[in-house]
């Protein structure tokens, strides 16, 4: 039964693939490759420019880095892992749990940041209490 089912799935994929021309799938794969490569090169160029010239400012640079990372992640998951072409149920079952990351990241990074601010505030207070000789 299970074997039969698996064979049917492959049959469907096989028909799917032959419906497109052979070349179009391969062309799509290479297109994604070029996107990933160019985005990575842009990231490295940005890092180099920032290292030598100090522009753009750190915050803007980091926002650009994180956005480009998400672009790369999208192409890998959607095209290489084929998720974009699966049924909606599967896409939602995988993506919805990952929404937990939004709160996960927000809560923890805020926590880390408040630790640093607390520590720096204490350091300032200590300096004020005992002035350097």
């Amino acid at each position: 039964m299970e074997m039969e089912q698996q064979a049917t799935f492959t049959q469907v994929t096989l028909e799917d693939e032959s419906a497109h021309a052979f070349d179009s799938t391969v062309a799509r794969i290479w297109r994604v490759f070029w996107i990933l490569l160019i985005v990575t090169l842009v990231e490295i160029a940005l890092a180099t420019v920032h290292y030598f010239f100090g522009v753009p400012p750190v915050l803007l640079r980091n926002v650009i880095f994180l956005s480009l990372t998400l672009v790369k992640a999208f192409y890998i998951v959607a095209e290489f892992m084929h998720l974009r072409h699966e049924v909606k149920n599967l896409i939602l079952s995988i993506m919805i749990p990952l929404l937990l990351f939004i709160w996960f990241i927000t809560a923890f990074l805020t926590d880390g940041n408040s630790w640093r601010m607390d520590r720096e505030r204490r350091a300032v207070q200590v300096e004020q209490v005992t002035p350097a000789p």
């Binding site: 990351f101 996960f104 923890f108 880390g112 940041n113 640093r116």
Partner: peptide, 18 residues
């Protein structure tokens, strides 16, 4: 989620350091 937990704890520690 495993890798996410690793990277987020790294980020938290990094942000908490001056």
């Amino acid at each position: 989620f495993t890798f996410g937990a690793f990277l987020i704890s790294y980020g938290t520690t990094r942000l908490s350091a001056s």
